[in-house]
């Protein structure tokens, strides 16, 4: 079942095109990795999906809700606020540098949104949070503050925070770029577990072997365009496009 559909997405900063017509779809339970050189628009694409950036052209539909469309004249039409809010909650986003709330305990970081956005009771939210902390291997950290945790632990808390809202799609924006190789392993393990549980995910990453491992499909982006798309074994082993070949050579 298709849950995300993106068509002809365009986005620029100060007249400089960053996304120049991106189209792709995502099925439920699918893990999609987006790879490509820095500045190719991978992060911007995630930020458009999660409404941190506004698009200039194109259509985005999520779980039957339309976030944005473009009419025949090329006018961009965003849906009304309440629909945008619903669409926003379909996505969870894990940031490169965690962005946990430093003044809140681990528990409150995770329960704040379920309580105040989804209007769950505190007890309900804490139960969900504890289950997630167990899953992340952080059951003894609920009273800790982010500054007392390692980078890997902080990132796992931020994954738990995103999961607590029970999103349809979990997006990762270079989740291991701020971590050393050892801590990177922790995070990749967690994402692998989620993949096994059929969590729908979009992962922007520079970890090629990891992308090959967990993805059902890989997109290679360069200069605001999708250059190549395919199953990981095809794209990594037999890249068709010359640009993809050149990029992947560096990782051999």
């Amino acid at each position: 079942m298709q849950i995300v559909s993106v068509k002809d997405l365009e986005k620029g900063f100060d007249g400089l095109g960053v996304l120049k017509g991106i189209s792709f779809t995502l099925n439920k339970g699918e893990v999609l990795s987006i790879i490509g050189p820095s500045g190719s628009g991978k992060s911007t694409l995630l930020r458009c999906l999660t409404q941190l950036e506004t698009v200039e052209k194109g259509t985005i539909e999520v779980c039957g809700d339309t976030m944005v469309t473009t009419d025949d004249k090329g006018e961009v039409l965003y849906s009304p606020k309440d629909i945008l809010h619903t669409v926003r909650l379909h996505f969870g986003l894990v940031f490169q540098n965690f962005n946990l709330f430093p003044h809140m305990s681990v528990m409150r970081n995770i329960t704040e949104a379920p309580v105040h956005v989804l209007k769950k009771t505190k007890a309900e939210a804490e139960k969900i949070a504890r289950d997630l902390l167990v899953k992340m291997g952080l059951e003894d950290k609920e009273h800790a503050y982010p500054c007392h945790l390692s980078g890997g632990q902080q990132q796992r808390v931020s994954i738990a925070r995103a999961l607590a809202l029970n999103p349809e799609v979990l997006c990762f924006d270079e989740p291991t770029s701020a971590l050393d190789p050892e801590l990177t392993g922790e995070i990749l393990k967690v994402i692998k577990t989620l993949a096994k549980e059929k969590m729908t995910m979009i992962v922007v990453t520079h970890e090629m072997s990891f992308a090959r491992d967990i993805s059902d499909r890989v997109i290679f982006m360069d200069d605001g365009l999708i250059v190549e798309e395919g199953k990981p074994e095809d794209l990594f082993n037999h890249p068709k496009n010359e640009r993809t070949q050149r990029f992947l050579q560096r990782y051999e």
Binding site: T50, N99, E112
Partner: peptide, 12 residues
């Protein structure tokens, strides 16, 4: 900026 962005994504 990340504090504002995290809040936004969480629907606050």
């Amino acid at each position: 900026k990340g504090q504002f962005e995290a809040s936004e994504v969480l629907g606050f």
